[in-house]
């Protein structure tokens, strides 16, 4: 059934994937194993995205399947397992001050989350101060900043400068993304990297989190 579950998820057969996961859980399969299979499926979907076979719809739909299955699996988990789940790393993320768009950021948050990151989503229109407070509090390996509007490139730059001034800059890696953000904006803002899509964000975060452990 393990292979079938991965297959169903990878091939976007949502209902079949849900039914299979439910059957496995009902029959006493270890919920952590079921979730592990889901993650494997998501990894394959991510690879298909990188090779240009899959696109946003598949990323989102497979993530949704994982979310549904996680919800189903929760009641089957022992309390200590739930509490001791170790995240891959911590990410503080938000749309920078002046920008209230959230769809791109939300997709990144969603993918980071289903890929095992502890994500602290500060929402939209996030001030420099709020970013700094969150970095102090959460102590993330990675900070993500989203900017769709071309008028908030300045805001992006100021936020990173503010982080520099507090001395927190060496403790985090900063990735930026959104609409017209590219290498040039990365240079301008002083970020460590930019990601053209959500999978790139997950890849960056994984690489950086690994560096720090």
């Amino acid at each position: 059934m393990s292979k079938e579950l991965i297959d169903a998820m990878v091939n976007m057969r949502e209902q079949q994937a849900i039914d299979l996961a439910k059957r496995m859980l009902d029959e006493g399969e270890n919920p952590l194993k079921v979730l592990e299979l889901c993650r494997k499926a998501l990894e394959i979907v991510g690879k298909q995205f990188e090779t240009g076979r899959y696109f946003l719809p598949e990323l989102i739909l497979s993530g949704e399947m994982l979310k549904k299955i996680s919800k189903m699996a929760k009641p089957f988990m022992r309390q200590d397992v739930k509490e001791n789940a170790v995240a891959l790393g911590k990410v503080v993320i938000g749309s920078v001050k002046g920008d209230i768009h959230d769809i791109g950021k939300d997709i990144v948050v969603f993918l980071l989350d289903v890929n095992g990151f502890e994500v602290h989503d500060l929402g939209v229109d996030v001030s420099e101060q709020k970013f700094i407070e969150a970095i102090n509090q959460v102590q993330p390996e990675v900070v993500g900043m989203s900017a769709l509007l071309t008028t908030v490139f300045e805001s992006l730059k100021r936020t990173i400068e503010a982080i520099n001034e507090t001395g927190l800059r060496d403790k985090v890696k900063i990735m930026i993304g959104g609409g017209a953000v590219d290498e040039k904006v990365k240079e301008y803002s002083g970020a460590d990297a930019y990601g053209p899509d959500a999978v790139a964000a997950v890849k960056l975060a994984k690489a950086w989190a690994q560096m720090q452990t």
């Binding site: 071309t150 490139f153 301008y188």
Partner: peptide
Amino acid sequence: VPLSLLCTG
């Protein structure tokens, strides 16, 4: 002409 260029170049 890219906006990133017009804004930051």
